[in-house]
Design a protein around this nucleic acid. Structure first.
Lengths: 232, 232
DNA sequence: CTCTTTCGCTACAGGTCGTAGCGTAACTCG
DNA sequence: CGAGTTACGCTACGACCTGTAGCGAAAGAG
């Protein structure tokens, strides 16, 4: 009695389809889980983020509204999970050069932002996350990190090709990768959603040339003033 | 009677403080206008975008809720106007070099995104604008264009300094400017809001070097393959 | 067969949106 | 100065959404 007894209600912590750690009791329906995420994406397409309601998603999915709240704390977390899976499509096929690889990832990300679900949801949950630490962490782990891996893969390939130097300081290398990620993802998002203009092949090519030009001109960060320019 | 008689209600088109074209009747209170925008920013700071309500803003501003709806169609438009004025602070002092100018504008924009009002509101209205053409246009004219001008100024200065070449094709020049704008604004926004990490002096410096390195390596877009690098 | 957890359902309190309708205030024009 | 026009504050409202509570029933674990 004196104990916290919080598990009585609002557990909802088990994120994945069913709750893994609990062995006993009725398991959560995996069909319901998939149906809910599908319904969420459908609702995003038809209604957009601002008009999407939990009740609507529930009826589309054929489950009770209470079931949604048993699994997600609020709309934002549900929507993050619903769109996160779309980011699994992102791949980085080896196109032979750093420029071509950047171009490829830009076009892929642009295609993702062209889908109405992500278009309306991505910035909305990011905006929400500025005041919700848990949501920010969920976004980071289920969306941002999936994109960032592509940058790391691309860098490794470029290093293997000799297009980029191997970096000594691991902390510095991480900072660089983070910056490159923000530049790529940020530019594409800004072009697509803020400027609201198409990220087409021409833009992707121009951008890639710009970025790779900067990367090969500026090996590390300021620390090493470097005298001569030119790629390694 | 048969006429549309739409002006009877929901005019609300007159955006600025008072309605300019109308000469007759009681003019809109400019004090109320300022009070509403102030109250909106205050509410954004305290409550954030998602918990900001029209009723709350009205009572903070000391006006009736109906007055808000007479001037703005919805929350989003009100918030855009409320934060737009903050973007007037953006300046581009001549720091002597393109790299330094980029660095300066990055830090200024970052400072703006550090304010809780803009932090919570900017991405929210952008998300909203993906499904609202009027809102998108309002954002473009009152926020985006104010930022974009800085890019144009910076390019002119760099051209005058000889750091960047004068471009022949005006359409191509416009595309380049747009891209640079998306790269700068996008990277800063992404770093600050998505990655949620600080845009500090070090980051600004690294980013500026990267960008300017790319710009001086890649003058135009692919069209003109250009042989030699280096500023004119 | 018992225990545990989830499920669907209903109901609800609390809150917001956006509008309508009224009487009044403020300003322009003839 | 009166008539016409527009903005204002106020009240009230219907429609809707959120998130929770409480129930009996279903679905597994041991």
């Amino acid at each position: 009695m004196v104990t916290i007894m919080s598990p009585s209600h609002t557990p909802r912590t088990p994120p994945a389809p069913p709750a893994s750690p609990s062995r006993t009791g009725r398991p959560r329906s995996v069909e319901a889980h998939a149906a809910i995420l599908d319904a969420t994406r459908a609702a995003l397409v038809e209604l957009g983020w601002s008009k999407l309601t939990m009740g609507d998603v529930a009826s589309r999915a054929g489950v009770a509204k209470t079931t949604l709240y048993r699994r997600w704390a609020n709309r934002s977390e549900l929507v993050v999970d619903a769109v996160a899976v779309l980011f699994d499509e992102l791949r980085l096929p080896d196109r032979g050069s750093l420029t071509a690889d950047v171009e490829g990832v830009v076009l892929q990300f642009a295609a993702l932002l062209d889908r109405p679900e992500t278009r309306t949801a991505l910035m909305a949950v990011v905006a929400e996350s500025t005041r919700d630490e848990a949501l920010r962490e969920r976004i980071r782990s289920s969306i941002v990190d999936r994109q960032k891996r592509l940058v790391l893969v691309g860098r490794e390939r470029a290093q293997a090709r000799g297009e980029l130097p191997y970096e000594d300081d691991p902390a510095q290398a991480a900072r660089n990768a983070d910056m490159i990620f923000d530049v790529i993802a940020g530019a594409v998002v800004h072009r697509a959603l803020v400027s609201a203009e198409p990220v087409d092949a021409q833009w992707a090519r121009s951008f890639s040339l710009l970025l790779v030009g900067g990367l090969t001109t500026t090996p590390g960060t300021p620390p090493s003033p470097r005298a001569s320019t030119g790629p390694a």
